[in-house]
């Protein structure tokens, strides 16, 4: 099945969704944060997640939430730890968690991404394209946490057409990639140039590869980060056709066989300049695109091992 759809271009662009690995330490930190700081406050709090390119075959890379995610990153990150800004809403009870309008919060996040694109903030900080959102209910009494994570992707009015896709090794030589990759930073930047330097290359799209750190591992589709990237190129720079470069790694080194180079076209969006426009968005983890969120199942974390009482029991 992996390559079943690979034949035949053009076709609609499909992407591999990113998945979140949240370690127990993160939820324990949230538990303590609720006890010590939040109380019953359920307004959104800023958190930080960490993004990496794919490093091991045949798995994708994951988005990590860690015990330090509740505090701002202490440095700019590195290749294994690209900090991404996100928000968390911790509700006070199960009912509040279940009754959250998930479509609405997703759209609100997408609106922020759209705003960052229009205002030019993304030019300076491409990581803003990868915003994420967490909703949770920390059941302190029972040492459980229920949560869902979303990676909002803007839904363009028109479909994105994938014109070609092939392993980077067929297009680039190893030397070229080594050169190219020395310029790839954090999560997304243009070939040989930072994204913000794009203007100097304007008018020369065909010789540009728009590269990004790709978490994905599939040969027939890029990782999900490309959607907001394309939205950015389309909305901010009015580009309608790009060649893109899904940069993947194997054990921290460029993986030409599994990196992808493709071409996609997308008609210009409309209505998006309207400041009141609320874009459609998808991105709840575990929810198929096009499906509603009604049936969404919360993930459940058991923090019983943090419970001093249960540890005492163990001793006896």
């Amino acid at each position: 099945m992996a390559d079943a759809g690979a034949a035949g271009f053009p076709r609609e662009l499909q992407v591999q969704a990113i998945e979140c690995l949240a370690d127990v330490g993160f939820w324990d930190a949230l538990r303590r944060h609720k006890l010590d700081v939040l109380g019953t406050d359920d307004s959104p709090i800023p958190i930080t997640g960490y993004y990496t390119p794919r490093q091991f075959r045949p798995l994708p890379s994951f988005f990590n939430l860690r015990s330090g995610s509740l505090v701002p990153p202490h440095n700019a990150g590195d290749r294994n730890n690209c900090p991404i800004a996100g928000s968390l809403v911790n509700t006070n009870n199960m009912r509040g968690f279940q009754n959250l309008d998930r479509d609405q919060v997703l759209k609100a996040e997408a609106k922020k991404i759209l705003h960052d694109i229009m205002s030019g903030r993304v030019d300076e900080d491409p990581a803003l394209l990868l915003r994420f959102f967490v909703i949770s209910f920390a059941d302190l009494k029972n040492w459980k946490v229920y949560y869902n994570v979303a990676f909002p992707s803007l839904v363009l009015n028109s479909r994105i057409t994938l014109l070609s896709l092939q392993p980077a090794s067929r297009v680039l030589t190893k030397e070229e990639v080594m050169f190219l990759c020395t310029y790839i930073t954090s999560d997304s930047s243009a070939s040989v140039r930072q994204l913000k330097d794009w203007k100097t290359c304007q008018g020369n799209y065909q010789s540009l590869l728009f590269g990004f750190y790709d978490h994905g591992c599939r040969s027939d589709r890029p990782g999900g980060a490309i959607i907001n990237y394309i939205a950015f190129l389309s909305i901010r720079w009015k580009i309608e056709k790009v060649r893109f470069f899904c940069y993947r790694e194997f054990k921290g080194k460029p993986d030409l066989e599994q990196s992808l180079i493709g071409e996609a076209s997308f008609p210009p969006p409309y209505d998006w300049d309207d400041p009141e426009h609320v874009p459609d968005a998808i991105g709840w983890e575990g929810v198929e695109p096009g499906k509603g969120t009604e049936e969404m199942k919360p993930k459940e974390i058991d923090l019983q091992s943090m419970n001093p009482a249960s540890q005492d029991e163990e001793k006896q």
């Binding site: 690995l21 015990s67 330090g68 202490h74 590195d78 294994n80 054990k251």
Partner: peptide
């Protein structure tokens, strides 16, 4: 390069190790 130094939790920082090089980790 899949390995990185990490700081860990500040409350568990070992004074004999540099603050940003408390332990090594490779993830996923």
């Amino acid at each position: 390069p899949t390995w990185s130094w990490e700081a860990g939790d500040p409350s568990k920082r070992k004074p004999y190790l540099p603050a940003d090089k408390q332990f090594l980790v490779t993830r996923n």
